[in-house]
Design a protein around this nucleic acid. Sequence first.
DNA 1: GCCTTACGTTGATCTGCATCAAGGAGCCCT
DNA 2: AGGGCTCCTTGATGCAGATCAACGTAAGGC
Lengths: 245, 245
Amino acid sequence: MIEHSIHVQCGECPIRHRAVCARCESDELARLEQIKYYRSFQAGQTIIWSGDRMEFVGSVVSGIATLTQTMEDGRRQMVGLLLPSDFVGRPGRSTAAFDVTATTDLVMCCFRKKPFEEMMATTPHVAQRLLEMTLDELDAAREWMLLLGRKTAREKIASLISIIARRDAALHLRRSSGALTVDLPLTREEMADYLGLTLETVSRQISALKRDGVISLEGNRHVTIPDFDRLLEEAGDDSDGGLLV
Amino acid sequence: MIEHSIHVQCGECPIRHRAVCARCESDELARLEQIKYYRSFQAGQTIIWSGDRMEFVGSVVSGIATLTQTMEDGRRQMVGLLLPSDFVGRPGRSTAAFDVTATTDLVMCCFRKKPFEEMMATTPHVAQRLLEMTLDELDAAREWMLLLGRKTAREKIASLISIIARRDAALHLRRSSGALTVDLPLTREEMADYLGLTLETVSRQISALKRDGVISLEGNRHVTIPDFDRLLEEAGDDSDGGLLV
DNA sequence: GCCTTACGTTGATCTGCATCAAGGAGCCCT
DNA sequence: AGGGCTCCTTGATGCAGATCAACGTAAGGC
C-alpha cells in the first residue's frame, strides 16, 4: 500500500510505476507514511464543493472522480477527470475552485494539507515533482480547450475514446498493436459534460462511429477499437501520437 | 529593470507589485540577475513553434503574446494569452507544446533554462512560487473550458471583455467604481480564436452589446463599460467577482 | 491625390447541434 | 411477474452560429 504516496513524491519513477525509487526512500517518505490515511466515497457523492476549505491533498486509489464547473442556470462543464493514480488538490491553496464528485465508488489516499505542505517546503524535489504534474495537467487542459472550441461532435467523441484508451493502456502497461478494448467509465451524460455536448448528440455520434466501423460496442460501455490510427484520424489529432506516450 | 526577474521569483509580493521584497534580496537573485537578458520580437513573429526545443523561460515586459494550437486543416484555438508580467516557459520540460506568437511588438525578460532550473532546485520558495503560478494558470484554463463548452456567443464576448478589464485593473492598480475603459489588445479574429467563434460572430455580438448599452465603443478597440456588474451578468459569471480579486 | 492592404461590419443563407418527445433495455425491489 | 427506476437510443423540429458575400473605414506608400 506504500505505492500511493510514492506516486505523489517521486520524480524519477513515472507516476504509474509501482517500484520504489532510491531517492524517495528518505525520512520525508517515512514522515508522509505516518500522516497518510484512506477515505472512501460512494458513487454520486460530492467530495468537495467549489469554495469549500480543502483540508487534504491525495491521489485516487480506485474509482473515478470528476472536476466540474456549474453555472447558475445549471449548465455544467467537466474540467477534470480523475482516474486511479491521479493527484487531487492544490498545495498552497486553501479553497477548492471546482466541485469534485465521485462518479463511482471511490477510495482516495489522503494527506492532511498542512503537514504535506511543510514537507514540500523542505524537500525541493517534491515541489518540483508537483510542478511537473501540474504542468502535465495544464497541457491536458489546453488540448481539451482545442477540443471544446474547435472540434465537431464526431471528432469530440473520437477524441474522448482515444484519450481513455491511451490512459488505460498507460495504466495497464499493455501495448497491443492490433485491436483494443476499452471500458468507458462515464455515462452518456458525463461524456456530454466532458465534451460540451448534449447526451443525445453523444449517443448519436457513438452510433454513427459504430455504423461506420470505427468502433464496435458490446453493451453500452464496452468499446472495441479495430484500428487505433483510424480513430485518431477521426479525432482530428495530429497522427503519430499512438498509444506510447 | 530589476523588477521583472522579481516577478518570477517572489512569492511574497503579488506579481504585479513592483517593490522588492526582503526575501528576494538574496544570492539567488543576484545570480539570476547575472544571467538575465532581454529579447525583442516584432508583431506577428512566432517566438516558439510547437515541438521546438525551448531554451529559455521568462516573463513578458511589454506587448502581447498568444499561445495557440492549430489543427491540420487550419482550425485554430488560442489556449493562452500573455500580457505584461506573465510568465512563459515550462521549467523541467524540453519542448514547447504550443505555438507562442507575438501579436504586438514584444519585449521579454529571459533566463536560459539550465541555470534557471539549477537555481530552482536549490531554492524551494522559487519552486513553490512557480507551482502557485502554474496552479493559477490551470484555474484560468478551467474557467476558459467552461466558457468554450457551455457559454453562448454573447456570454463569451462579455466574459472576454470582463477578463481583460479585470487584468487591466489589476495591473494598473486602479479601482474605479464607476465607468471603466479598456483597450482590447486583440483583433476580432484573435478574439474569435480565443472564444472558439468566427470573427463575424464576434463582430456581431460586440455590436449587439453596444446596441443594448452594455458597452460603448470609441474606435474599434476602445471599450467603455458603464456598469461592470451588468457586464458580469451578461457573461453568465457568478456575480460578486468584481474587479478586486 | 489614388492605390493597396488590413481590419471591421452587416446581410443572406445554410447546417450542426440543441431541444422536445417517445420509446427500449437492463436492473432492483416487492 | 410486474412496476419503477436509471440509462440509452432514435426521430422530428428549431435555432444559434457558421459560411458566403459584399461593402466600409483607416493607415501607409508613392
